[in-house]
Design a protein around this nucleic acid. Structure first.
Lengths: 116, 116, 116, 116
DNA sequence: GTGGTCTAGACCACC
DNA sequence: GTGGTCTAGACCACA
């Protein structure tokens, strides 16, 4: 797996897992890859994966069972969408708007860009 | 001045100055605040401001005259717009599109959000 | 059965059985559930129940007869009370006192809380 | 510094810092020991201290400033008391009550024990 | 086998 | 100097 240099790896793993859950590749309630499996697959230290898993557990998106494995929470998908939407509206949208105004990009031009 | 934790302070100062130039608050050709003045005003270490100024000088947006002061370049405004547009199209737009798809936000909903 | 995350499951099973014995639900001398029955009932791996039983046997609270079953020891109830009291006075009470001081909870307030 | 074997070190460091804040030894708003200083002082790996600090930052009790240091939050003391009280009422008090009933310890006896 | 913690040591961006 | 991330490797309790 390839990582973006500007974002910490463990957060990119978080994004990766969130995506898998949203696409249904990791279904809610299901057991997913163990720390070591995931680490081996994406070529990263198990500690780093553990950090991602711990983060996701604090967000109630997965839960870890000692000696058993890692499971997707029941309402994980809705939770992820909620989190992403909240972050999008609060952090990213204002920045987009500000930048568009500064660059004199109007909604029509944005529409064209989006359709490409 | 308040800073976003996820972005380095010196880059946020760069954004801050870019904005002042685009809005005309720092007109092209004019002398702007010294490193020390700026540092005092926004409550930051002078070294950090120096780093922002150095960065902006490398981008030809300002220039420093030793012993005299800091000045906005003649074509600063156009240069900034060019840089921002390039970054917007290359880095931010793809991420926006991806996120909008994941969250099922279409162009109409975005339009509504933008108008608020 | 639900388990507290901060304590190991086998010890929670130990507590569970101790309680049954103290309340008389598992009378002294009587045969109690086998490892497999217990495991099925509370939804846990039989190995884990076995660990609890082994622990309780070492404490002379139950004894296992190979091929026959698991039995509550004759003086189990007294033994349990003695163990719990010892642990309570030695480990828990000092922590309670310290925490109450830090939280400015005095004996009167505790009394009120206990009566609820 | 000595650590209890039954609790993870990083959580014991959390307790340690909470206490220092409650007693005023680490005043609100003040800069406290850096990760490395703390690690050296208590004889623990810096990563472990970092874990404690990160935990406390998520609880809004301290905040970390990159390149500058670690600071106690403004309302840290109240926050800590709130957290401890909540945990005490929710987790510990019910267990105490249950255990006291099982051991036939009444409030008078507890009072005597507390006064020792 | 699993999660969970800890150490040792390194590198980076930032102030 | 500071925080922040990552690796490598180890040990433990638990299932």
């Amino acid at each position: 797996m390839e990582f973006n240099k500007n974002k910490s790896i463990y957060l990119q793993i978080v994004d990766f897992i969130n995506e898998k859950i949203l696409t249904g590749e990791f279904p809610e309630g299901a057991k997913i890859m163990s720390v070591r499996e995931m680490a081996g697959m994406i070529g990263v230290n198990p500690n780093t994966v553990m950090r991602s898993y711990t983060y996701l557990q604090e967000e109630d998106i997965i839960y870890l069972k000692r000696g058993i494995g890692v499971f997707v929470s029941i309402h994980a998908s809705a939770k992820i969408k909620k989190n992403l939407k909240k972050a999008f509206l609060k952090n990213e949208l204002p920045a987009i708007i500000k930048k568009m105004k500064m660059l004199n990009i109007d909604i029509d031009e944005l529409n064209k860009l989006l359709n490409k």
